[in-house]
């Protein structure tokens, strides 16, 4: 039992299970999954479908955070990618044409890669602190997205494009399949090759890893490019789901949700260790929280209060300092015990 609670995925998994069970108590049909017209429907499928962009971005964010960095610009990348794709499709003579949609997708993802490269070069080549380097794109990116859409909300009507964020393939939502493929591919690449190890080494100590012969800078750039690529796909999903590109609001604050998902999943913001499964769990927790609040009929804006409480609770539970102070103090070993604990922390 103790080994179980010590596992790094125990707390995130426990919280997710508790939240899902709470949902079942409120709505008994919560776990029911139905097959309608060859499509799967149900609350669980909804959580996966609406959580798909968040899982993707959190996945990319995990790689960046594993290197000891952070990427604040993913929300802007989401907006830019969606804006470019929609504005290209809107200019096509036939919006239904698969070729046009593929071109749009290719251009949007290509631009995302460029944005990631920009972040990566700022961090790895010029040596700017990641939080500052990506802040630049976070501030300027929404302006760029509005520049692409000319300040308008571009609506499109293209069935092939709608498949990305709202369509179904083999009964499953297409977005969920995309996420599954990306997560599985990343997991294989990271854990079956030395890549994950090298990333963790860079995150643990970039300078030391460079001295032992790891090409730290190249790996850093790679992490940011991958993160932006994930954000680009998520941008396609989000714009495809609402069939419009909104430079101002698409992916607003999703970088914060993604960072939360990563932290809830047990990845340290200091870098050097990460957990892909934890990140997916974290993203699902955040999405389940939102879905739960929608189903209970509380005004959706109030979600933020619950989010704040859950975030605080999860972070505090995972904080060694908090556990040391609060849980040890409760132990009836006399009044002397908290003092050395505090002295230790203070030292």
């Amino acid at each position: 039992m103790k080994a179980l609670t010590k596992h790094r995925l125990f707390w995130p998994a426990a919280i997710l299970v508790v939240m899902l069970l709470a949902n079942v108590i409120v709505t008994p049909t919560f776990f029911r999954i139905e097959l309608k017209n060859g499509h799967l429907y149900g609350s669980l499928i909804d959580i996966m479908l609406y959580g798909a962009p968040l899982i993707l971005i959190a996945l990319g964010m995990t790689m960046v955070i594993a290197t000891g960095g952070i990427d604040l610009s993913v929300g802007a990348t989401v907006a830019i990618s969606g804006a470019l794709a929609c504005s290209i499709i809107a200019e096509q003579p036939d919006q239904e044409a698969v070729g046009g949609v593929l071109t749009a997708v290719a251009f949007a993802l290509g631009l995302s890669l460029v944005l990631g490269l920009w972040n990566g070069l700022l961090v790895a080549r010029i040596g700017i602190q990641p939080i500052v380097a990506t802040l630049i794109l976070m501030v300027a990116g929404r302006g760029v997205a509005q520049l692409i859409t000319d300040g308008q909300i571009i609506t499109i009507n293209s069935e092939p494009y709608e498949l990305i964020g709202g369509g179904y393939l083999f009964g499953f939502p297409f977005a969920v399949l995309v996420v599954a493929v990306v997560v599985a591919g990343t997991a294989v690449l990271i854990r079956r090759t030395a890549l994950g190890l090298l990333l963790e080494a860079v995150g643990g100590n970039a300078e030391a890893s460079r001295l032992v012969g790891i090409r730290a800078r190249r790996l850093l750039v790679l992490a940011y490019v991958f993160c932006a690529f994930c954000a680009g796909i998520a941008g396609l999903m989000i714009s495809s789901n609402i069939r419009a590109a909104d430079g101002n609001n698409a992916g607003l604050w999703i970088e914060l949700d993604a960072i939360l998902a990563v932290v809830i999943g047990g990845t340290s913001l200091m870098g050097g260790r990460f957990s892909l499964a934890g990140t997916v769990l974290g993203a699902l927790i955040i999405q389940t929280l939102s879905t739960t609040i929608y189903t209970t009929g509380v005004p959706p804006q109030v979600t933020l209060v619950f989010k704040a409480l859950v975030v605080t609770a999860v972070c505090l539970i995972q904080s060694p300092a908090f556990r040391a102070k609060v849980f040890r103090r409760r132990r009836p070993t006399g009044p002397a015990s908290p003092a050395p604990a505090e002295a230790e922390v203070a030292a």
Partner: peptide, 29 residues
């Protein structure tokens, strides 16, 4: 929370941001 529980400022103030915005909507939508 940042100092005594060693939560990163980024995360702690992010929670604060969610809380404050949420409270706005609790007061009135």
């Amino acid at each position: 929370v940042i100092h005594h529980f060693e939560i990163q400022p980024f995360i702690a103030t992010l929670a604060g941001m969610f809380l404050a915005r949420g409270l706005c909507f609790v007061i009135s939508i």
